[in-house]
């Protein structure tokens, strides 16, 4: 007897299920918070068996941390790509990276909320993941800024922290989808110390939107 539907390769199905569980915990924690999210809700939302969850993850926290980890990797790839875009000047690179960040937040609001808001208070391990991600993005920013003479050593940390705070406010207001509107202001904010105020116009004069 032939199967009712064509069989997909096993690894494909497995990784698709992992992805669905990670998406589910992002959505549920964004809606109700980490504490209130139960395994039963996750398996229902992801449409997988409870056993599948435990075959793939040690439990709720492991799934949560894996989901954050995966999202941070994707975000980093997107931002790095954004930094390489355009004419290769460091100004355009920073604006491109920032644009990629804002688009990620807008396109995946639940994931953004999980990584930038819920992670901080959910568990000590998730807070550590958040801190590690912040450190990585500070480094990435530092590698891409225009030469700025001798600005304070901590300037990149302060600027990235400022951008994170603005995005956290935006996400908590429920306006993650409109994050790309912040591009001109945030571009100016992060570039002012390097280029002077008022020298960066319209998000660095990047492509027309």
């Amino acid at each position: 007897m032939s199967p009712a539907r064509p069989e997909l390769p096993r690894e494909f199905v497995a990784s698709h299920k992992r992805r669905r569980m990670m998406d589910a915990i992002a959505e549920l924690t964004a809606e109700n918070g980490y504490e209130a999210t139960k395994i039963a809700d996750i398996v229902r939302r992801a449409a997988v068996a409870r056993k599948t969850l435990y075959d793939n993850f040690d439990g709720k926290e492991d799934l949560f941390l894996s989901a954050i980890d995966a999202a941070v990797v994707e975000l980093r790839v997107a931002v790095e790509e954004g930094c390489r875009a355009d004419d290769g000047s460091s100004e355009a690179g920073i604006v491109g990276g920032l644009e990629a960040l804002l688009e990620f937040v807008a396109e995946r609001p639940a994931v953004a909320r999980m990584c930038m808001v819920e992670a901080i208070s959910a568990t000590p391990s998730s807070a550590r993941l958040y801190d590690a991600a912040m450190r990585d993005f500070v480094e990435l920013f530092r590698e891409n800024v225009p030469p700025g003479g001798d600005l304070p050593e901590t300037i990149e940390e302060s600027l990235v922290g400022g951008v994170a705070w603005i995005l956290q406010l935006q996400i908590r207001r429920g306006e993650a989808e409109r994050a790309p509107d912040l591009l001109p202001e945030l571009s100016q904010f992060v570039l002012s110390p390097y280029l002077g105020v008022g020298r960066v116009v319209n998000g660095g004069g990047r492509r027309d939107r």
């Binding site: 705070w165 956290q168 406010l169 202001e185 904010f189």
Partner: peptide, 21 residues
């Protein structure tokens, strides 16, 4: 000092940056 505007989000971003640091 030289034209242009300080973006509206600057006050908030500066406070957020200091507290984060």
């Amino acid at each position: 000092p030289v034209g242009g505007d300080v973006p509206e989000a600057t006050d908030e971003a500066v406070i957020g940056g200091i507290t984060s640091l």
